[in-house]
């Protein structure tokens, strides 16, 4: 500083104070944010289409994501054929494996070998005889609520694709399989052949 500004006549235990003005940029930003804060509060609380609520944004994102995911798939039906068909669709099974990892692996292990939930890779089913039973168990739950009813949470297509994924685990070799429970299951049906061109499976997972 070439020269100090005016010192006030205050003095406290040797501490003095300058009579400096508050910096201009500080004032500018202070008032800018005051004005913005009031403006933003009023607009946001009064409601504006430019500031949708988080719930509205969530709903839009959710619909958009479902449309994007299942646009090529349409509405699936929980039939034996449909479940068996998608169990052989690599792309949709890659999709379902991620849903499985997020929601099922804690009880059934990531590879389906079973832990407190039954082994899904062996030939035996606790509540499952036919391929449709898989869908019933996932959708409605089982074992007095130990297995939750996932239809409350998932899109119907997700429940069907998960059923296909579980069906596809049969016969794979887990890292360490839980002991078999229940009875021998029926063999899964072969899905009816579908036309190749324009087939939803070809674009599935996109």
């Amino acid at each position: 500083m070439p020269h100090d500004p005016k010192i006030l006549d205050h003095e406290y235990d040797g501490i003095q104070e300058f009579d400096n003005p508050t910096p201009g940029w500080w004032h500018f930003l202070f008032f800018l944010f005051l004005v913005f804060g009031v403006f933003y509060s009023v607009v946001s609380i009064a409601g504006s289409p430019y500031l949708p609520s988080p719930e509205t944004k969530h709903k839009r994102a959710s619909i958009a994501a479902t449309l994007k995911k299942f646009a090529s798939l349409g509405d699936l039906e929980p039939t034996a054929d449909e479940i068996a068909y998608y169990a052989q669709d690599d792309e949709w099974m890659a999709y379902a494996s991620s849903v499985f990892a997020a929601n099922c692996a804690s009880c059934h292990e990531a590879d389906g070998g079973g832990k407190v939930g039954p082994n899904l890779t062996d030939e035996f089913g606790k509540n499952v005889r036919t391929i449709e039973d898989i869908h019933t168990v996932i959708a409605n739950g089982a074992n007095a609520g130990a297995m939750p009813a996932w239809s409350e949470r998932f899109h119907p297509n997700d429940v069907i694709l998960l059923s296909s994924y579980v069906a596809s685990l049969r016969g794979t070799t887990p890292f360490s399989g839980a002991p078999a429970e229940g009875e021998q299951m029926e063999p899964w049906p072969e899905p009816a052949p579908r036309p190749e061109t324009g087939d939803d499976a070809a674009e599935g997972g996109g």
Partner: peptide
């Protein structure tokens, strides 16, 4: 506000700023 000017042996930069920033 007490120890820094004591240690630096310098007057506080701005009394006006003290007032405005304290109340705000």
């Amino acid at each position: 506000y007490y120890f820094l000017p004591k240690a630096a042996k310098r007057p506080v930069f701005s009394y006006k700023l003290s007032i405005i920033h304290f109340w705000s």
